[in-house]
Design a protein around this nucleic acid. Structure first.
Lengths: 153, 153
DNA sequence: AATGTTTATGCAGATTTTTACATAATATTA
DNA sequence: TAATATTATGTAAAAATCTGCATAAACATT
């Protein structure tokens, strides 16, 4: 059971149950035969950008914000994705073009979107190429430099 | 410098230079400041599906087949990709539906395409979902079972 | 504020991945 | 075919990742 697979179960469990604590979540995972400790689910919830929200009745349950903008990919996680998948960065005017191995552009675009990179107003991804549109007043070259840094290039 | 990043350089170097041996490639990488041994580039070339082709003049150089179908993702590599990214597998008639984390469906589809999975005639990927079309005479459920196995589910 | 509950995190061990070294296997050339 | 050059691979070390334990920090309740 990979980390992604466990985290997918977490997402489903949060949708299906009113999970009030991390120990609760550990229990629910256990019922599915997935063993994990509170420390691990704490990190999973962090990875997934989950938040605890108050619900009518006074108690609070975990949930994953619908709107991606509310989710936050911690900088560390973004760096990990860029470092692994981005193989080239270039720019022109207000655009930054990132290259990836075949089929991987969406992974990177998705991470960038969720991380809400400062100075980027959006991304589009093809198969092995994605473009990041720099906000007005932001030079693509500067944004490119920043992304290059994150990618370790 | 991640493995993907190094392999991307290999692809570029093979396109730009007539690389006659793995030691040659090691040298070219070295010129770019990337240190790697012959054993490593041997595995890289394998990962990339590179082949050695005869060119006019009698010597043979490395190249990566244009047509993806000529490339082969070794079974081990495919298993790795599916195990990491596939979080759910289901099927209906001649279709298998795979779910992945957001943005990762293309990675999986791309790997499946290049691996040339027996009984699959093609894939389409969205953001977190991809479909595999089973060949006529192949039950989607059977194909699904096989993929589930590869994904460790 | 004190107590109890819940969550985050430093650290170490376990696991996985990557890579180099050494060498076996293969291919090439004389 | 023998000698040489090239490539593949078993093995171990290094590096990176993941996870549990222990505990600190944060939060809630009385």
């Amino acid at each position: 059971m990979s980390k992604h697979q466990r985290q997918h179960r977490v997402i489903r469990l949060l949708a299906d149950h009113a999970v009030v604590s991390q120990e609760h979540l550990v229990g629910l995972l256990g019922e599915e035969g997935v063993v994990a400790t509170q420390a691990t689910v704490s990190r999973d919830l962090d990875d997934l950008g989950a938040i605890k929200v108050r619900v009518p009745g006074g108690d609070s349950v975990y949930a994953i914000p619908e709107h991606p903008a509310e989710r936050v990919v911690p900088g560390d996680q973004l760096r990990r994705v860029l470092g692994e998948w981005v193989v080239d960065v270039s720019s022109s005017l207000n655009l930054v073009v990132l290259r990836t191995p075949p089929g991987s552009a969406h992974v990177v675009a998705s991470a960038l979107d969720r991380a809400g990179v400062e100075g980027s107003i959006g991304t589009v991804a093809g198969d092995d190429t994605l473009m990041v549109v720099a906000a007005e007043g932001i030079a693509g070259a500067d944004l490119a430099d920043r992304l290059r840094g994150l990618a370790g290039l």
